[in-house]
């Protein structure tokens, strides 16, 4: 197990900020796609929402981000150590008391307490 962890570590990204559950983040995700001429093109899409869960460990760690898009809840899971993740910034630090914020799915508006600076 230890060997596996160490090998995974060599492939993990170290440039990522510390993200906790409850934070509001903006994730920039790169999609590789082919245009009409068949050429490889990269398109970057930003996704902004609240981190409602962190899953997995090591290289398999993912962030589940939820946002309300025109009144509809949208959730996306991002593998943290993927090369397609081109940007990750924390916009607001949240203050929450549980590890999974699945209760937000029952709510119309996503509200998480801001973390006080003091």
């Amino acid at each position: 197990m230890d060997i596996i962890r160490r090998i995974e570590q060599t492939m993990m990204r170290e440039d990522l900020p510390q993200v906790n559950v409850g934070d509001t983040v903006r994730v920039k995700w790169q999609f590789g796609e082919k245009d009409r001429s068949g050429e490889e093109k990269a398109r970057v899409q930003a996704f902004e929402g609240i981190v409602i869960a962190k899953k997995g460990s090591g290289i398999n760690e993912t962030l589940v981000v939820r946002k309300m898009s025109s009144g509809v809840g949208v959730e996306k899971a991002f593998p943290l150590h993927s090369p397609n993740l081109v940007g990750l910034e924390v916009i607001v630090r949240g203050k929450v008391r549980r590890a999974k914020l699945y209760y937000l799915r029952e709510k119309r508006h996503l509200v998480v307490k801001k973390k006080s600076r003091f």
Partner: peptide
Amino acid sequence: IGMTRFMDQRG
């Protein structure tokens, strides 16, 4: 040793 996952350049 065991199994894990690697990621290629395309993620």
